[in-house]
């Protein structure tokens, strides 16, 4: 199985007529996703690769069941688009847009909580359940996505979209498939953290191990370590930590908006120590990940 999305998940794309969103629609359709509509205010009645375009979300939800929405509108319009989807009853929202002010992200997350919905992102590439569907730009064109991602038993979560593909590609090359890969986003405030998604992987019988990509900044890794210990998670976790050089450069921002060393807790050294204390294995290099997965699952023949 997978988490969050399967081939039966129906979703819409808000801002579907934008240049990047048009490409993304093509990629998702080719991968087998069920896109039931697109929204661009003022463009109702058109279509994008056969996907009907509407002016409002409710025009779609009135006709058909919508599980999710990908929001790909400019930053100034994102909050409105997300509120529209949430008030329209959509329960899974992937926000691709970057550079949304934190306060607005927090407002979206707060409303989502009130509506019993989940947000992935912002500043993310979305979700891909190999062999099922993809929701967002993760993996790119269907032909490329099929090269890098394969169906299997590892759940993947990453603060970097590009590194999600890199890690899955490495797993695939080693014959290890993925249940679902989630690009959770690179901002300081995001809808779903590692710890938020853990219970879903936990409940998925096919997921046997977790691979995560981490960076300096924020408390997300500490939160995961706490979760793992308190919940006695059944899933072994392998973590890759990038940006070790940043420990020596406090106050400098590299990579994503959420990546900055402001205090000791932000450093990779501190994060690695916390993760290890919680029984999480640290991969020094991306290519060490498959071996560690097998080792943790007792599949390395020892």
């Amino acid at each position: 199985m997978s988490i969050l999305i399967t081939k039966d998940t129906t979703f819409i794309i808000q801002g579907i007529t934008g240049r990047e969103a048009v490409n993304m629609s093509r990629e998702c359709l080719d991968y087998g996703s069920k896109i039931v509509g697109g929204v661009t205010p003022g463009r109702g009645g058109r279509d994008v690769y056969g996907i009907p375009v509407y002016d409002t979300v409710r025009q779609i939800t009135a006709k058909t069941h919508v599980d999710g929405a990908v929001v790909a509108v400019p930053p100034a319009f994102t909050r409105d688009a997300v509120f529209e989807a949430l008030e329209g009853g959509v329960k899974l929202i992937v926000i691709v847009t970057e550079r949304i002010p934190r306060y607005e992200v927090a407002q979206m997350v707060e409303l989502a909580k009130m509506r019993g919905a989940r947000i992935i992102g912002p500043n993310c590439l979305g979700i891909l359940s190999p062999g099922e569907a993809k929701m967002g730009g993760l993996g790119g064109r269907a032909v490329d996505a099929k090269k890098a991602f394969s169906k299997g038993y590892v759940g993947v979560m990453s603060r970097s979209g590009g590194m999600t593909t890199e890690m899955c590609n490495t797993l695939t090359a080693a014959g290890i498939g993925q249940s679902t890969a989630v690009s959770i986003g690179g901002d300081a405030i995001i809808g779903s953290t590692y710890a938020d998604l853990m219970p879903l992987f936990e409940a998925d019988q096919e997921t046997k191990a977790i691979v995560i990509y981490c960076e300096p900044g924020g408390r997300m890794e500490a939160e995961l370590a706490k979760y793992v210990v308190e919940q006695k998670s059944r899933l072994p976790i392998i973590a890759f930590m990038a940006g070790r050089f940043m420990d020596e450069m406090p106050g400098m921002r590299f990579g994503h908006a959420g990546t900055i060393v402001e205090g000791k807790a932000d450093t990779t050294a501190e994060k690695i120590a916390r993760l290890e204390a919680a029984g999480i294995s640290i991969a020094e290099r991306i290519e060490d990940i498959p071996g560690l997965v097998k080792k943790r699952l007792g599949m390395d023949g020892k």
Binding site: S158, R159, S160, G161, G162, M163, E166, G186, Y213, E215, F240, A242, G243, R244, F245, M246, M252, R253, F254, G255, H256, T259, R285, I286
Partner: peptide, 28 residues
């Protein structure tokens, strides 16, 4: 983006966000 100067001899054209962090660590 985010062009930051260091004093070495190997110029880097690398990406993207997470990839750059990973590659910079690897070079070092």
């Amino acid at each position: 983006g985010n062009v930051v100067e260091f004093d070495g001899d190997l110029g880097l054209v690398i990406g993207a966000g997470g990839g750059s962090l990973t590659l910079f660590d690897a070079i070092r």
